[in-house]
């Protein structure tokens, strides 16, 4: 194996492109997405439905559903390329090195098996433990994720747990083999606010304790603001803006991020009307030329209609917007 330099990111995605061949032509759902996550870091990925955030997560764990396929780009985990691995090899990485948490805890657990059976099976697949040891580890994991009287609860079926507890079981399942990376796709969307806070603080704690990296995919800016270290904002399959969480949330640069933040109602802010972004995200079949956000952008100008903006560094973030092109900035400074 290649020696990994100490400062290398845990996960690196380079120019990822995901395509869906259809009868009416090829749809590009994710286009030229590059990102990296360091050990112990939480990268938030936000965007509206259809922005490509979940597909990016699915591509990383090798669970893209056909006909979706990775058309271009590379995915590197600890310096090793994983996107072109054969199915069996990827299956061993999944669960062992990359864990996954999905939105609906009811569908990610098998209703016919007890929690202990599901945990023990997963542990034994990945770790060289006997059944007895695996069971002990399962109980330990349930305690770690905060399930009371774990020795007893381990033999229960998923339906005997409440929503929040079920999501804890799913997290325990993802943690089984102490993965280096967890892909959490909308882990709190199906939960109530009060339970949401419990799950987020649990994820953050586990991430710090085990130095696990987390890719947190969600549409909820509140969850991002609270849990993420860095944020990538996706729009129409591309990253519109990526940067430290404080920069993105408090000092949004891309007009889309700006609109998105303004459209969230705040408690204590008395506004009669919320900022609204006109229209809706274009369908994959109708992505306009140039910047995909141009039909909805309040600051649109000529170049946006024919040149696609690339990510460029602006202060601490990177932004894909022509407003920050060198000429534009010079013009703004001249005013």
């Amino acid at each position: 194996m290649i020696v990994v330099p100490a400062n290398q990111p845990l996960l690196e995605v380079k120019n990822l492109r995901i395509e869906f061949p259809t009868r009416r032509g090829t749809l590009v759902a994710v286009n030229d997405v590059s990102l990296h996550i360091d050990p112990g870091e939480v990268l938030g990925v936000v965007g509206e439905s259809g922005a490509g955030k979940s597909l990016t997560g699915a591509a990383i764990i090798g669970l893209l559903e056909p006909p979706g396929r990775i058309a271009e780009g590379q995915i590197m985990l600890e310096g090793r390329r994983i996107d072109d691995l054969p199915y069996e090899e990827m299956r061993r990485i999944r669960g062992r090195r990359i864990g996954a948490i999905f939105q609906d805890p009811l569908t990610s657990l098998n209703p016919l098996y007890t929690v202990s059976r599901q945990l023990v099976e997963t542990i034994m697949t990945h770790l060289p433990l006997s059944e007895k040891e695996a069971r002990a580890r399962a109980i330990e994991l349930l305690q770690e994720v905060g399930i009371p009287s774990a020795e007893e609860r381990v033999d229960h079926y998923p339906h005997q747990f409440s929503g929040g507890m079920r999501q804890r079981v799913v997290i325990a399942l993802a943690l089984c083999a102490e993965p280096r990376l967890i892909i959490a796709d909308e882990p709190t969307t199906a939960l109530d606010v009060s339970i949401q806070a419990q799950i987020i603080s649990l994820l953050k704690r586990l991430c710090k304790e085990h130095q696990t990296a987390v890719m947190l995919v969600t549409h909820d800016m509140g969850v991002i603001a609270e849990a993420a270290d860095r944020v990538a904002v996706m729009y129409s399959g591309r990253i519109a803006e990526i940067g430290p969480v404080r920069e993105v949330v408090l000092n949004a640069k891309h007009p889309y991020t700006h609109g998105l933040m303004g459209s969230i109602p705040h408690i204590g802010h008395d506004v009669d009307e919320l900022t609204q972004i006109q229209g809706a995200m274009p369908r994959l079949t109708e992505i306009p030329a140039g910047c995909a956000f141009n039909p909805r952008c309040p600051k649109v100008f000529d170049r946006c209609y024919h040149d696609r903006p690339d990510l460029q560094p602006v202060e601490a973030s990177e932004v894909a917007c022509h407003l920050y092109d060198a000429e534009e900035r010079r013009a703004a400074a001249g005013d």
Binding site: V193, Q196, I200, S201, D220, M221, G222, A225, R246, I267
Partner: peptide
């Protein structure tokens, strides 16, 4: 009070969200 404390902090004031203990 608990519900209000559990709201995520979008202003990034550093206020710690206090999770509601237990479940319904």
């Amino acid at each position: 009070r608990m519900l209000l404390d559990a709201i995520p902090d979008l202003e990034m004031t550093g206020r710690q969200r206090v999770p509601v203990a237990g479940e319904v």
